[in-house]
Design a protein around this nucleic acid. Structure first.
Lengths: 164, 164
DNA sequence: AGAAATTGGTTACATTCGTAACTGTCTATT
DNA sequence: AATAGACAGTTACGAATGTAACCAATTTCT
């Protein structure tokens, strides 16, 4: 029972390293380009794809904590990239929708993301990329299973994946 | 040129999800158990494995920003898990070393980490785990290559992998 | 119908983090 | 030897987060 332990071979740490490597580059891109934070651009992405959602739905879709969503929505609203509209049936909820301006920026951002994916596949190589995706697919299966298990017990989806 | 885009298939996001899933569980473990933050436990791990390092070395070894290291060192010092000693030859640097108490806690933490690895491999399955590791190995190769490239240009290792 | 519990969303507060500025020490250049 | 630059480490400060408390609207229970 050796007490020796190499952090660099510890799975959570290795994953963290890879994630940050992959994420930071892209984060820098849209931060420099649009002064946008990650919650903001995730919100934009969610609304761009689904066109009309409530804040809670965005949180579930993008695995963000509700305060993050709230703040991101407010920021995007200030830029006039999205507008709120109220629901007559249930006046607690707000429907959120991109404005034309927001849609334009969404499209730009999608292009940016696609470009970045090309950069990544260049860095990783076609082979490395497919290996990584296979590994991720396996992990995602486990995550889904674990989520199912949790949901049964606690009706939870409380989560934030903390991608800030 | 479709404007459609699914965040959930975007590599940085997928990696982020997997990382948080894998990391949060362990983070909760040692936070609840020892009230320790991630930089603290990483510092502990680095010193446990190498027994005598400077703060800068810890930063390089564990990819943490120097302010993080500084704070973690101070916290561990307050717990009397490590002690500083000065270097006569160069009085800017401080040698850091675990105390006996620190070593004991290091060993516990290592056991905790090993146990968690078992949990993970149970969740992922032997097959999923090896796939993920293969993918990570590929990513790490790319990271190393990219770091080499950068180092040439800018003498950099400025990094923080931001695993907080 | 009315009290209690739930839900959508926002806000206050404490914590954590990174950037940049700063101190003290060493090295290189002159 | 003296000055400028580089480097180890700390600290002040602003930005970003998460927890928890909160408000208002709605549903559930009795």
């Amino acid at each position: 029972m050796r007490a020796d332990f190499d952090l660099n071979s510890f799975l959570p740490y290795r994953l963290n390293r890879a994630t940050e490597f992959v994420s930071l580059g892209f984060a820098a891109l849209y931060r420099d380009r649009y002064g946008m934070t990650r919650p903001e651009w995730r919100t934009l992405a969610a609304l761009g794809a689904n066109s009309r959602m409530t804040a809670t739905e965005i949180g579930i879709h993008s695995s963000m904590h509700k305060t993050k969503v709230s703040r991101a929505v407010r920021a995007l609203e200030k830029r006039r990239w999205l507008k709120r509209s109220e629901n007559e049936a249930d006046r607690r909820v707000e429907h959120l929708e991109l404005t034309d301006l927001g849609i334009r920026h969404y499209r730009e951002l999608v292009e940016l993301a696609r470009g970045y994916e090309k950069v990544l596949s260049g860095l990783l190589g076609e082979d490395g990329l497919s290996k990584l995706e296979a590994g991720l697919a396996a992990a995602e299966k486990a995550i889904a299973a674990s989520a199912r298990r949790t949901r049964g017990r606690k009706a939870a989806i409380r989560g934030d994946v903390s991608g800030n």
